[in-house]
Design a protein around this nucleic acid. Structure first.
Length: 480
DNA sequence: TTTTGAGTTGTTCGA
DNA sequence: GTCGAACAACTCAAA
């Protein structure tokens, strides 16, 4: 009789350390067959965007190398996942398929169907939690309700949280007696090499993820709350793309950050109250919301916003996308996004507010642009945050929280360093005017080499007036 | 069932 | 320059 063989289906868990599906497959004994399957048609309305595809390419390359160091191979396949898996079972003789769960509505549905079909085939099919501190359905109120407000969600999660110890990285991965064929490439890279700057900025893969986590946790967490709001400095964790692709285990990160906090002699409660712990729980909350509100990726959570008077205008959207709005902090953010596939969180809120409130463009347009351009594009986080910005999501604060890009720039980029880095044509503008060059005296502009409307755009609109119009549109929506 | 307290991230205006 | 109130009431979660 042949030894048991387990297909390990990698998805958004591109790591060997603390990987529940992989560890369970190894613990089962016999051999394992690692595979990644690309299938855009099974991602619902959200096939992976360009920046994510570049990241995935790099991450799969890193994973394949790590797997081959352990005497095995990573198969690459394209096509309907069930068909691919059934073919692999036939060619290899595997009797089980293990994977770590994903939580996007379309994927939940597909995975459920695959699990059922494999059971019917007489194959063992098992899924694991490799992506979250707690499953979305395990964090519920005493009356089994889901949550729509962060603070009670966090409180409940901390009450029921039990983070298990890390699972070790397998030293060896015995392969099947017969290797099915693999595609040589998934053709994830674009023909135009716009990703060269991203390559210099990021190190996708498990090694890059743990290096970044180590660097981040070497700093005092106490400075994080303030540092994360200053876009000119490297004050955020920058772990979002690594977490999205599962190159680092969030449970491992939780434990490491917790012990780093303890090593600094902080009282026991300090970790749970730290801003970084909260940020990790915000990620959990986003998954919780998407799980219980699967339509929220496309529709406003607050249905009154179905009748909000958006004024869809491609010209305005294009100016926003290209970083040509005439508001320096906004343009800096949009250009940073385009250059490195990532934008500082504080700036994400500012650009979203301008698009939604001042330009009054539908939040879904912003969500789609971010989806295509962010290396950390994540359906749960992207949905929650865009809905939050629109005022249609899980947020008690109402629509009238409208960011002023000049005020925000002066508060969070007081020296204009971030603006000058990403909007080089403004480099010579004195700090006093860096966030409102259109209001600078003409002699100041001249010596800075700036001609408004020519070397740098005039503001797309009047902030005060567009703010009033947005508030009026909001009032009108509520009244009918 | 009813009541009570509270809710990520803001801006503007006027004293 | 600083500070509190107004924005506009509403929904959620828990007691």
């Amino acid at each position: 009789m042949s030894s048991p063989g387990t297909i390990v289906w990698f998805r958004q868990d591109l790591r060997l350390h603390d990987n529940p599906a992989l560890a369970a497959a190894v613990a089962r004994g016999g051999w394992t067959l690692p595979v990644y399957i690309l299938c855009d048609e099974e991602e619902g309305d959200w096939p992976m965007g360009g920046a994510s595809r570049w990241w995935l390419h790099e991450s799969l390359t890193a994973l394949a190398a790590a797997i081959s160091e352990r005497g095995s191979r990573l198969l690459l396949q394209y096509g309907a996942a069930l068909d691919v898996i059934r073919t692999l079972i036939k060619r290899s003789g595997a009797d089980a398929v293990y994977w770590n769960r994903r939580y996007e509505p379309a994927v939940i549905e597909r995975d459920g169907a695959i699990k059922q079909a494999l059971h019917d085939d007489g194959i063992v099919a098992a899924s694991f939690n490799g992506a979250l501190l707690a499953e979305p359905w395990d964090v519920r109120s005493p009356t089994h309700q889901s949550y729509r407000v962060f603070t009670p969600f966090k409180k409940r999660l901390l009450e029921c949280l039990a983070v298990p110890g890390a699972l070790t990285t397998p030293a060896q991965l015995p392969g099947p007696p017969h290797w099915p064929q693999s595609l040589r490439t998934l053709e994830l890279l674009p023909t135009l090499k716009w990703y060269s700057r991203m390559s210099r900025h990021w190190q996708p893969g498990e090694r890059g993820a743990s290096r970044r986590a180590r660097e981040f946790l070497a700093r005092p967490l106490s400075g994080y709350a303030a540092a994360r709001n200053t876009p000119a400095i490297d004050g955020t964790s920058s772990l979002s793309p690594h977490l999205h692709f599962g190159e680092i285990s969030v449970r491992q990160l939780w434990r490491s950050a917790q012990s780093a906090a303890k090593r600094r002699a902080a009282p026991a409660s300090a970790w749970h109250e730290s801003t970084f712990a909260s940020e990790l729980i915000w990620r959990e909350f986003a998954y919780h919301l998407l799980y219980y509100h699967p339509r929220s990726a496309l529709e406003p959570l607050d249905q009154r916003f179905e009748r909000f008077a958006w004024r869809a205008d491609r010209t305005l959207q294009n100016a926003w996308q290209r970083g040509q709005t005439g508001f320096p902090i906004v343009d800096a953010g949009m250009r940073q996004l385009w250059a490195i596939g990532w934008m500082h969180n504080r700036v994400r809120m500012i650009v979203a507010s301008l698009l939604i409130k001042n330009l009054r463009q539908p939040w879904l347009q912003g969500a789609r642009w971010f989806w295509d351009t962010l290396v950390d594009a994540d359906l749960a986080a992207n949905t929650m945050n865009w809905q939050w910005s629109a005022g249609s999501g899980a947020d008690a604060a109402p629509f009238f929280r409208i960011f002023n890009p000049v005020t925000q720039g002066e508060r969070f980029d007081p020296n204009g360093e971030y603006v000058r880095r990403w909007v080089p044509e403004l480099a010579g503008v004195p700090t006093q005017f860096i966030h409102m060059p259109h209001l600078a005296p003409s002699d100041v502009l001249q010596s800075a080499g700036v001609r408004i409307g020519q070397t740098y755009p005039a503001p797309l609109l009047d902030l005060k007036q567009s703010r009033q119009e947005a508030l009026m549109a909001y009032r009108a929506m509520r009244q009918c």
